[in-house]
Simulated scan of single mutants.
Amino acid sequence: MEQLNKIFILGGAGFLGYHTVKEAVNRGYSVKTVDIVELPENLKFKEEDKVEFIITNFFNLSDQEIIAMLKDCDGFVYAGGVDERIVPEKPARKFFYEKNVLPTQRLARLAKEAGVKNFVVFGSYTAEFGENNAELREYNYHKEPYVETRLLQEKLAMYGGEGSMNVSVLRLPYIFGTMEGKIPLWSMFVDMLRGQDFMPVTSGGAATVTADQVGQAAISALENGQHRRTYPLATGYISYEDFYKKIVEELGQEEKTKLQVMSFEELEEAYKEDQELTDKKGVEHGIRQVNMLRANSMEFRLPTDVAFDELRVREEDTEAVLKETLAWANTQK
């Protein structure tokens, strides 16, 4: 891997982009980052941090303007895109293709033309299970609009780098952490349980990582990542039952809210009904409800050695980070 000098990070005012900029600065790199909004005043980087923060709509720039902006950078972190929580109008495949695939394909091509040598994409761990989980593949999980387009996003970025640019992907799971000015996605779960007497919980669980660790992994992947390599990134795991228990504790509803773990078979009919209602509304989930239930009824674990051994991610008190995240989510509106 060639020596890195200056790193371009797309989305430096975003949750993951900001944590990635911080890690690049910690390792002594110069950084150029673009976003459509400014950072909060107390999060802005100091002059000695060597961060050039550009406020513009990057995707509206011409190809030549983007190439010119990237000319002095040899690393690129693509911290953009949308996740499966968004429920677009039908067809969902078109929406996720336009939001995740096309922009990544374009920027990988332009980055290579600009002379960038190392390109890292923030992807999704749904791609990991869509590619490798035999049981889910039996039910065409890998052909769900969101999963399929995430896999396509990876491939086209890699094709774009062939010949002179290393392209690798971080397949990201549940991410915990906080950032001033950002409402964490976990707020929707906190609000869902607020004041509830009863809540069914799926029987599976999810791999986890912290936002700081994502930033660390991204810079390590730029430094040492292999072309066409996908990195399933995780430093922990939490069952959905334990996750919901922690939310109930944060809300102080231990005496009020009863959580009941239910199997796929027990919940399947309700999810089928919800899928039919969604269809009638003219919108479509990126992962159909029944397949989402099927996945959420499994233990979505990922090996932690990739993070700690290959990407040199530092150990963190994940319990403390999760607690802080839920407390933050409970106060943000």
Rank of each mutant, 00 (worst) to 15 (best):
M1W: 06
M1I: 10
Q3L: 11
L10I: 06
F15G: 04
L16E: 04
L16Q: 14
G17V: 09
H19P: 03
T20E: 02
K22T: 07
R27L: 09
G28Q: 10
T33G: 07
T33P: 04
V34L: 05
V37S: 14
L39S: 06
E41Q: 13
N42W: 03
L43F: 04
L43D: 04
K44C: 00
F45N: 04
F45I: 02
E47D: 13
V51K: 09
F53C: 05
T56L: 12
N57H: 10
F58P: 00
F59H: 11
L61E: 10
L61D: 06
S62W: 07
Q64S: 15
I67A: 06
A68G: 12
D74F: 04
D74T: 11
G75T: 05
G75S: 01
G75P: 00
F76N: 01
Y78A: 08
G81I: 06
I86T: 14
P88Y: 07
R93M: 07
F95A: 14
Y97Q: 11
E98R: 14
K99A: 11
N100V: 05
T104S: 15
L107I: 15
A108M: 00
A111K: 02
K112I: 03
G115N: 10
V116I: 14
V120K: 01
V121R: 13
Y125Q: 14
G130Y: 01
N132G: 12
N140L: 15
V147W: 06
E148V: 07
T149V: 04
Q153G: 04
K155W: 07
G161S: 09
G161P: 01
E162P: 04
G163Y: 05
G163S: 03
V169Y: 05
L170N: 00
R171G: 05
I175A: 00
G177Y: 00
T178A: 06
E180K: 15
I183N: 13
I183C: 07
L193S: 07
L193F: 03
Q196W: 06
D197T: 08
T202S: 09
G204W: 04
G205T: 00
A211R: 09
G215I: 08
I219N: 08
E223N: 04
G225S: 11
Q226W: 00
R228A: 14
Y231L: 06
P232D: 11
L233C: 06
A234W: 01
T235S: 13
K245N: 13
K245V: 00
K246C: 01
E254A: 12
E254C: 11
E255A: 12
E255Q: 14
K256Q: 13
K258R: 15
L259E: 06
Q260G: 02
S263E: 04
E265D: 12
E265L: 02
E265H: 10
E265I: 02
E265R: 12
E266V: 00
E268V: 07
E269M: 10
A270L: 12
K272V: 08
Q275H: 10
L277H: 12
L277M: 13
D279F: 14
G282S: 09
E284W: 08
H285N: 15
G286K: 05
G286P: 06
Q289G: 10
V290I: 15
L293I: 04
R301S: 14
L302Y: 03
P303K: 13
P303F: 05
D305G: 12
A307F: 08
F308N: 07
F308K: 06
D309H: 12
R312Y: 10
E316A: 14
A320K: 11
V321C: 07
Q332R: 12
K333C: 01
